[in-house]
Simulated assay, not measured.
Amino acid sequence: MASLLIVLAAAGGYLFGSIPFGLVLTRMAGLGDIRAIGSGNIGATNVLRTGRKDLAALTLILDAGKAGIAAAVLGYFLGTTAGLVAGGFAFAGHCFPVWLGFKGGKGVATFVGTMLAVFWPVGLTVIATWLIMAAIFRISSLAALAAALVAPFAAYAWGRPDVAIMAAVLTVLIYWLHRANIQRLLKGDEPRIGGKKDKAETDASADSEDPDTPVT
C-alpha cells in the first residue's frame, strides 16, 4: 500500500509539474510558440523576451506554484514522504515534460516552489540567497546556482535529512541543466541582469536554455 501511494504521488507530481504554463500563456495571448524565440525555453525568462512582463511574472508564479501545490496537497493526504516524492517529480515534469518531447525548463522556479512546500524555511533561504547573489553580481544564472547549492545544506542544518537528500538530487539536476550557463560563467560571457547582450551572447543564449529565474 505504501509503495502504491508513492507511485501515485510520483505520477501526480510529474503530470502536474509537466504543465508548460509559459507556452500555454503565450499562446493564449496570441504570441505564438515561445519555443520559437530567444533561447527556446518555456520558462519566465524567455517569456519576458516577448515584452510581456505580466505574462513572465505569471509564468514564474505558476511554475513555482505547480510544484508547491503538488508537494503540499499530496503530502497532506498521503504523508510526508509522498509529498517529497511529488515535489521532486513535479520538478522532473517541468524539466522533462512528456508533452513537449521531454524538453522543458531549467526548473529553478519549480525548485523554489517545491522547497517552500516541503519545508518553508529552506524555501525562504533559497529565495534570500538568490536575491542577495543577484543584487551583488547581477547574474541570474549564478544566483540560481548559488541558491540551489545552499538548499541541501540548509535542510540538513535544520534537522531535515529527508529534505536535504531530495534537495541535493534536484540541485545536481539544476547544475546539469545549467551546464551551458556554467561554461559561460567560467569564460566571463554570461549576460548580466538588465544588461545589453552583444551578438556573441545572444547567439550563445539561442543555443541553450536560459534559467527559469526571475529577472523582472
Rank of each mutant, 00 (worst) to 15 (best):
A2Y: 15
Q183W: 13
F111C: 03
P214V: 02
L4C: 06
I42N: 02
F21Q: 03
G12R: 10
K196H: 14
T213R: 04
R160L: 11
A155G: 06
A90P: 00
A44V: 01
M115S: 05
G104T: 07
L100C: 06
F77W: 15
M28K: 14
A200K: 14
A148M: 12
T202Q: 14
P20E: 11
E201I: 04
T81N: 10
A151E: 03
F89N: 01
A70N: 05
T80L: 13
A167S: 09
R52F: 06
M166P: 04
I136C: 06
N46G: 06
Y14C: 13
W158K: 09
N181F: 12
P20K: 15
R138E: 00
F153W: 11
G104S: 12
I165C: 11
V122N: 06
L177C: 02
N41L: 07
G93Q: 08
D210F: 00
L15T: 05
D203A: 14
L177K: 13
T81S: 09
G107M: 08
G43K: 12
T213I: 08
W158Q: 07
A57R: 14
A143E: 03
K199A: 15
D33L: 11
A11P: 00
L58V: 01
G68M: 07
A72G: 00
R192E: 04
D203Q: 08
L58M: 10
G123R: 13
L78I: 01
Y175F: 15
I69V: 14
P20N: 13
K66T: 03
G22K: 09
G12F: 15
A143L: 01
G87Q: 01
W120I: 04
G101S: 03
I132Q: 04
W176K: 11
Y76S: 04
K196M: 10
D54R: 12
R179S: 12
G159Q: 01
T80D: 12
D212S: 12
A180L: 05
I193G: 01
D210C: 04
G13F: 12
W99P: 05
R35K: 14
A90I: 03
A180D: 01
G79N: 03
I182C: 08
T125I: 06
K199F: 14
A29M: 05
Y14E: 03
R184M: 13
G93V: 07
F119Y: 15
G13S: 08
V98L: 15
V47D: 01
T202E: 13
A86V: 05
K187V: 01
L4R: 13
P211E: 04
C95D: 02
S18L: 12
F111S: 02
T50H: 11
F102I: 01
V172M: 10
Y76N: 04
Q183F: 13
G38K: 05
Y156Q: 08
Y76F: 13
L173M: 12
W130D: 00
G195E: 08
A11C: 14
A164V: 03
D54S: 09
L124W: 15
R27D: 04
G159F: 15
M1V: 02
K199E: 09
M166F: 14
F21S: 07
A148F: 15
R52C: 04
S208R: 04
G195C: 00
G113I: 06
A67C: 09
A90D: 02
R35G: 10
T50V: 03
G104E: 05
